[in-house]
Each structure stands twice: as structure tokens, then as C-alpha cells.
Design a protein around this nucleic acid. Sequence first.
DNA 1: CTCGTTCATATGACAACGTCACATGAAGAG
DNA 2: CTCTTCATGTGACGTTGTCATATGAACGAG
Lengths: 196, 196
Amino acid sequence: MVSRVESAAATRRALVDAAAELLDEGGPDAVTLRAVGARAGVSRSAPYGHFPDKDHLLAAVAAQNWDAVGERLDELIADGRRSPSERLERALAELMAVGRGHPHAYALMFTAPTAEHADAVAAVSRTHDQFLAIVADVLGDGGDARPIGALLMTSVHGIITMANSGHLTAEKWHTTADELLGTLIARVTRTAGPAG
Amino acid sequence: MVSRVESAAATRRALVDAAAELLDEGGPDAVTLRAVGARAGVSRSAPYGHFPDKDHLLAAVAAQNWDAVGERLDELIADGRRSPSERLERALAELMAVGRGHPHAYALMFTAPTAEHADAVAAVSRTHDQFLAIVADVLGDGGDARPIGALLMTSVHGIITMANSGHLTAEKWHTTADELLGTLIARVTRTAGPAG
DNA sequence: CTCGTTCATATGACAACGTCACATGAAGAG
DNA sequence: CTCTTCATGTGACGTTGTCATATGAACGAG
């Protein structure tokens, strides 16, 4: 029951989960290999049996987060009760909820994987494809969904990061992240053509 | 000529410049206090005579970068030969040029100052106000420029950061950062009303 | 069952880092 | 000239990521 390979896989999962929890709770500075090991019930350099270095462990956390978002998008796509534009709104709102609710985890998802971890790159690619499918469904067969999808994705990403860094204050900009999301969707998806 | 206060001010400037250069060249990891001191011609803990800690030194670098952008926006505002919408395009292009040309410096500008450094907060506020003035000039007297300005600022910020982190590949999204900027301006400033 | 191998994990150690306490030496005030 | 002030240099400490090595239990062969 506790075969060697099973135990190793469990330890790997525990390490990734511990790193994710520490990141969520205390930010990047709280994610030390010693703290990760302690929370996972192993010692400080046990991660080196599963990852080449700390960056790869963090890449595994990022991949897990991307997969979680992809799962939510999957549910949206499978849910036939909603209209395409409603699905797009929900997808963007989901991204916003993750970004605002778990700022550190979100920031990690958008720090260059640079082929450090093939799993992370694949997870990102999968989730992006799912998002593009949702956008394509809204636009119909009229044009290429990718540039419009990119504009939506990058803009929502900018709203989230500026809000998280405290640069999007209501006093200065007289609006909120949620309002900006609504305006963005309205203005970008209004006429579904490819580019202005 | 080398009065004590002058010398101290010169050292402070040298420290900030050294930190900015190291950041530009080697990224955040290259900015160690020892390296900063060495490049500035002083020793490793000289910064502590001018800043409470490393974060405050970095905040000073961020403030300097924000002021530099503000200066460029000032030039745009002062240049009467351009139309308001042309000025807005140039302002956003300027932001994009900084972000793409100096990714580490740009990332630092958008990491929470959180009142660490009053100078940094003031520099950010000044530059944001200048940007809003440019946006207001495009919209005319028809409405509040702030929400539209926020949407433009956050979206461009998102384009820059996603491009810098390698998440905005041409293969996946079939577009480029520059194209997205054009589409953004076209779709957001088309009809100048406040919100959709 | 027994023995030798393999491999995940634990421990010790090292360099580099941010930071502090203290020493030093020159600029400015009287 | 003397004393004070303050920017700077030096030594030291705790923490971090990482590696070399030791250990001990899960496997395959006999």
C-alpha cells in the first residue's frame, strides 16, 4: 500500500500543495524550501528528489493553478444552459475572481515559465485554448477569435494586476475593477469583427 | 565643492542609478546591495545611510522611472502640433516602449509601493494625472475621463506584462502587442462616452 | 528467507544575501 | 584648535538555496 513509487508521488503532491498554501497565505517570501518541507512533513531538501530546483517546484504550482482554471472553463463550456456571451462573461469573471482572491498564486501563474517546466507550459496552453474556444463561440464564424481573445485576456490581466498592486484606486480612477471588466467586454465584443 | 551634504546627495543618486542599471541589465536577482554599493563606488551597507532598507531603495528607483515617464508625457502635452488623439496614441506607445524595452524596470514600477515611499506614491500619482489629462483632451467635455483612462491604462499594462512574461506568443494568439494596442485604442475610444 | 541494490529522504556544510552593531575619519561649529 | 556630527567601512549574525554525503527502507535475485 505504501509502495515506493506511491510514497514518492504522494510526497511530490504534498510538496506542491504545501508550496501553494504557503504562497497563498504569506506571499512569495513565505515560500522557503524549509517551510515547504516542514509543512509537507519532510525535511528541507526533500524537494530535490522531485524537482531540480525551487523554480521548478514553483512551476509545478503554477501548472496546478492553470489546470484548476482550465477545469472551471471546462465546466462553463459543458454547461449548455448559458448563452455564448454569458459564458464569456463568466470566464472572465472567473479569471478575475482567481486573480483578486489569490493574488500571489495569480502572479505566479504569469511569471515566465520559459520552458522551465514543460508541464506548466502545457497547462497554460490548454487553458488558453479553452478560453479561445469560448471567445470563438461568441464571435461566431465571422473571424479569427485569437486577436480578440488576446485583447480580452491581456486587458483583464492588466485590470487584475493593477488592482492587486494598489495602482487602481477608486479615488484616482473613479471606477472599480469590476466596472472596468464590464466596460471592456461591452466595448471589445460589441461588433465582432477581427480588428478596428 | 565637496561639502558633506553635496557628497551625500551625490552618493544617494549614485546608489539609485546603480540599482536601476543593475536591474535593467540583470533583472531583480542582480540587484544586491553589495553589487549596488560596488557599482556606486561605496561599500555594501552605505545604502543604509540613505534608505531604511532595500525596498526603499527600489522604491526610489521606481519613483525615478515614473518621473521619467511623466517627463515624456509632459513633452507630449506641451507639443501643440499634435492632435489630442495623436497625443494619446503616443502616450500609450511611450508606455509600451518603456515596458517592452526595460521589462524589469517596468515591473518594478508596478509592484505595490504601499506607502513604503512617499516619493514613489507621489511620482505615480503625478504621472497618472498627466495621462488622465491627455485622455480628457481626447474625450472633450463629454464625460469623466477617469474610467476610460483606467481601462486604457490597465489594458496596455496587461498587454505589456503578458508580452514580457512570454504568455503572448504570436503562434497562440495570432497577433502582436503593437496590434493589440491599436485595436484597443480603436475599440475603447471610438465613441467617447463614459461607459458602454 | 537472505542478501545486495536502488532510491527517497535526512543531515551537515557552504556561499551569498539583507541587516545590524560598532569603528573610523573627515566636514562643520564654537 | 577642539569637539561634535554623520556618512561610510568592517565584522558579524541569521536565513536562504543548494550540494555532498549518510541512512534506511523498499525492491529483485538467489
